[in-house]
Design a protein around this nucleic acid. Structure first.
Lengths: 167, 167
DNA sequence: ACAGTGCACTTGAAGCTTCAAGTTGAAGCT
DNA sequence: AGCTTCAACTTGAAGCTTCAAGTGCACTGT
């Protein structure tokens, strides 16, 4: 590292670098973030021909009463822009897994609706995906270890969310 | 395939679904993974006009003796395909931040070399990025909490790596 | 009643990553 | 020397996300 990690008299422009332990832990975390989702997505695409976003759109729809949800609510839950979701749903619609209707109660909203074919697709795709999550995340950890981390991630998420309010 | 606890008699094809606590913790983790890097990248692009990959290529080059490294080694460290790296370095080269030369010792390798302008760019960009990492990751956690997580992420990383050997 | 405003999407273009083919340099074999 | 093979890139096309503009529905105030 050519970075100046010493506290003392660095030029004012020198970055306030991370402390040793923080830095290596952050690099460990960043590596995982850069690789885990793409790895899971690769398996999804190979096994089910769905990418991460498409899979989760189907999954979230399946969790709704009537398998129906407003696009804007879905975008929020999927951590997606409305634009991205719109493109994704158009693709899923062309494949027959989802259809769209204006919300009868308020025409400004659009309802995304899971079709029976879409539900079939999800049911067929889920087991391999769950297995991959176990293999890459749960199995390498001790039993119960991930549960302990849930609140930690939730706090990070809140900070990210605060930084992006009104994106 | 380890802990088949005494779950109710399910059909053989039934997936090992995630248990309640596992599931919510995994969703917390997945949400962070889906949002944190894009959020950091947004700030990088806004403040420095560099994306995540470009920034880290500059950063990794700056950590090398002579600010030089083989493309294939860089690709590995950046968790990137060689193809992706090649495109990224071409862009950085056009901006004058990096240049490439064949390795004089073995013409099959290509050396990526950080230019003075590239180093300037990194020094100018790092403080805001480090600050963003602090704000979104370090600050919401207790002091020392991230350090404890380093080994956890390393174990996950090893599992991901095992799943992707020879991609 | 109706122009103005604010959302909730939708669309098209641009940029980045991925995937599949190419190139090229070195080493091994004959 | 020549032939084969392998690894390290490079390149171009295709697909997905992002960004910036649209479009349309409903409410607001006059």
């Amino acid at each position: 590292m050519t970075k100046n990690t010493a506290d003392p008299p660095a030029p004012a422009a020198e970055p306030r670098w991370l402390q040793g332990g923080e830095l290596t832990a952050w690099m460990s975390m960043a590596r995982v973030m850069a690789r885990l989702l793409p790895a899971l997505e690769r398996e999804l695409e190979r096994d089910a021909d769905l990418n991460w976003m498409e899979y989760h759109v189907l999954a979230m729809l399946s969790e709704q009463e009537r398998h129906t949800i407003r696009m804007s609510v879905l975008a929020d839950r999927a951590s997606s822009s409305l634009s991205r979701l719109s493109h994704v749903v158009r693709r899923l619609e062309h494949q027959g897994f989802v259809r769209r209707e204006p919300d009868p109660g308020d025409g400004r909203y659009t309802l995304a609706i899971l079709t029976p074919e879409g539900y079939e697709k999800l049911v067929a795709s889920a087991p391999a995906h769950v297995e991959a999550v176990r293999r890459m995340v749960l199995d390498p950890l001790d039993p119960g270890e991930l549960e302990g981390l849930g609140p930690v991630f939730d706090r990070i998420y809140a900070a990210v969310d605060a930084a992006e309010r009104g994106r």
